[in-house]
Design a protein around this nucleic acid. Structure first.
Lengths: 243, 243
DNA sequence: CTTGCCAGTCTTGTATGCAAGATTTGTCGC
DNA sequence: GCGACAAATCTTGCATACAAGACTGGCAAG
């Protein structure tokens, strides 16, 4: 019983575990995903892991460095720009092609925005990251087009990785307001306006990035050493220079 | 030497061979892709073939039927609708976000339209199918966004499979005129109009489909009977039914 | 003539084994 | 102390082996 449930769904669960880890910002860009380690985590052989990695690579989520290993992608500045441009194109096209917001869709949006508000109030940054991405997936789901949902989910995953690299401050409130404005335009039935707002919103987020900073090879090292949760103040006070 | 050149590019060449075969309409929907056969064709082991199939499956180009085999997808009517809807969204967003057509872009479009004209004049339907899809990829390339190019390439592949199933007549001239109109609007710099024309064009093509016809039942049966690429002489005992 | 069953064969699913490349570490020479 | 070289180790790349499910064909019974 206990080993049945993991076994039967392992086919896709490796993929989903990685994607979900990225969407919830638990997996950082550049994380190494060892075939052996993942294999033992899921109690399968390397074959299955490799197949999952191949799929994830196709989705632009992991990269293989030959004979070195699999790594969660660290989008370059150029790739980041491409991802945001692609999202602008698709989301604008998506909203612009809508002409009706169903009642259940309205409720979905409201429920989501409420969750965002709650996360902001709670200051739960990880959950917030997840929600901020989810908003755009929700919109795609409203279109009822599974292809676009899939595309936007993967682009959202990459967006989160990008923000983890290049985003210094997390303007959660600004993003949340952007989402509110988009939702409001949709409720008004003005989807052209919603599309324009979505483009504007993505522009805002993109300009909030610092694309000049390097992907930072010592990021995970610093992470391993200095922050178990996150303590910027006490880290350098740990080895105080005694007189 | 002779085995070096295939070896080094085999990594992606299986994928590309299949995709290129679909884009040029040489591979029909529902075609079975046996791991063993493909493996011997490329002189590699099944492992590589499997990996390629996994990638292609992720791209929505092939499907695996468990323990039965890999098959080029036969999009259902619903999937066909989704594919066209996705293309409308993306291509409209793409054109709507453009604001400039470079000189080289203009030349690219002209050259492509000339090729379409030539293929129509020559009556080369297979080449025409390929070109009709390529037009939209060219536009994506003009955007300079590799992500969108990749997405549209795969959607185009699926579109071709759809047309092979559901398209009875090939209104080549109509499609070509649609392309010309889109290109003209782009040259005028009126990208909003180009976007609207693209949506209209895709609508035209989609309404030209007969989505009521079933994908498989008589397609591969007719193919098995009437196509003689190879004739298994002794395999069939029912060839003596003449009175 | 039709129908049900059973064995044979063919397919993919999965694991494992071995080889080659990359990194790291330990050691030696300077 | 410092740099370079080499062996050890760890990683993926790829092939192969074996197992299990699905289809095909023949055969027998009704």
């Amino acid at each position: 019983m206990q080993d049945l449930s993991p076994q039967q769904n392992v086919q896709t669960s490796i993929d989903e575990a990685v994607v979900s880890g990225i969407l919830s910002a638990r997996i950082r860009p550049g994380t190494r995903l060892s075939e052996n380690e993942v294999a033992s985590l899921f109690n399968v052989s390397r074959t299955r892991v490799r197949e999952a990695m191949m799929r994830l690579e196709q989705r632009g989520i992991v990269k293989v460095s030959p004979r070195r290993g699999w790594f969660v992608v660290e989008p370059s500045a150029e790739e980041a720009i491409s991802v945001y441009a692609a999202r602008r194109v698709i989301e604008a096209g998506l909203l612009g092609s809508m002409n009706h917001l169903s009642e259940s869709g309205r409720e979905t949006l409201h429920a989501h925005l409420a969750e965002e508000k709650a996360a902001i109030a709670a200051g739960d940054r990880q959950r917030l990251t997840c929600l901020m991405g989810d908003f755009h997936i929700r919109i795609a789901e409203l279109s009822g087009n599974p292809i676009l949902v899939e595309i936007l989910r993967d682009l959202t995953a990459r967006t989160i990785l990008i923000s983890l690299i290049y985003q210094s401050d997390f303007h959660a409130m600004q993003s949340h307001l952007g989402h509110c404005r988009i939702a409001a335009a949709m409720e008004e039935g003005d989807f052209e306006k919603a599309a324009a707002l979505a483009v504007e919103h993505l522009d805002e987020v993109e300009t909030g990035l610092d694309l000049t900073r390097r992907p930072d090879p010592l990021a995970d090292l610093r992470r391993s050493l200095s922050l178990p949760p996150q303590v910027p103040a006490s880290s350098n006070a740990s080895h105080k220079t005694k007189p």
